[in-house]
Design a binder for these strands. Structure first.
Length: 253
DNA sequence: ATGGTTGCTTAGCAA
């Protein structure tokens, strides 16, 4: 199983690139975040013509998550508790439980949205503990808006104590790993220094000012099958890229 | 340098 997670920053603006990615990598499962649209503007037809099913939790203007899959998804679950934002969708594909998350950004440390981010991560951990077992074949992937370690930040001094690197969110991320889940990208690239997001505003990509915010976490039985993990950095190049590059993992199951 | 760009929606917000 080849699994991709990608924050597209608007499905409508990124459709051509998404279709090219499907043709290039031929993934079995694609987790998308930041659709920035409700179901009524989701390009179901184009994705079906590309050979994929789509389970979608959309939202007008903001957020929105989807799971694309070659095989038909079952047991589709939408939303995290009473969260009003479209930030979580789960489905079972080819016997693997896929949980796709778009974790709140946090905006500024100390503001109301920061507390919402911390609460959201705590609620995610509790929901996983309640609805899944560490012995399941399970992947939790998406845009976590957390750089787990300074080796996941090209210029750690510039991002110190930011909403993406603060100790509070790093602790909560480690809590997910302690459940336990394995960061399969880290497993294959223990030295870090490979990134998945570059800020549009700082013109960060040409400066090499990246952070690794997009993750594929797997339970031990699934992580043991992971034979490769990559970032498709080229996807950040050229005309109209997303600010995130796709992260992908291969599982030999 | 509290800078800068992109997308949605329509001047302002979110990232």
């Amino acid at each position: 199983m080849k699994l991709v997670t990608w924050n597209v920053n608007s499905i409508r603006s990124r459709l051509e690139r998404l279709l090219a990615l499907l043709a290039r990598h031929k993934p079995d499962v694609v987790c998308l975040q930041e659709l920035k649209g409700a179901e009524d503007v989701f390009p179901f037809d184009a994705i079906q013509q590309a050979g994929y099913h789509a389970a979608v939790l959309g939202q007008k203007t903001y957020n929105g998550v989807a799971i694309l899959s070659r095989a038909e998804p079952t047991d589709i679950h939408k939303g995290l508790g009473d969260d009003e934002h479209a930030r979580l969708i789960a489905a079972t594909v080819d016997g693997v439980r896929i949980v796709n998350v778009y974790v709140p950004n946090g905006r500024e440390v100390g503001c109301e949205h920061w507390d919402y981010k911390l609460d959201w991560l705590k609620t995610l951990a509790a929901w996983l503990a309640k609805t899944a077992k560490a012995t399941d074949l399970l992947a939790v992937c998406g845009d976590f808006n957390v750089a787990p370690d300074d080796s996941d930040v090209a210029h750690p001094d510039e991002w110190a104590d930011s909403v993406l690197c603060h100790d509070r969110v790093r602790e909560l991320f480690r809590g997910l790993l302690d459940w336990p889940l394995v960061d399969v990208f880290r497993k294959h690239h223990p030295d870090g220094r490979i990134y998945s997001w570059w800020d549009y505003r700082r013109l960060a990509f040409p400066k090499g000012d990246g952070l690794r915010l997009d993750h594929i976490l797997a339970t031990d039985p699934l992580a043991r099958c992971c034979s490769a993990a990559e970032v498709d950095r080229d996807e950040r190049k050229g005309e109209k890229p997303s600010d995130h590059a796709p992260v992908m993992a291969t599982f030999d199951i």
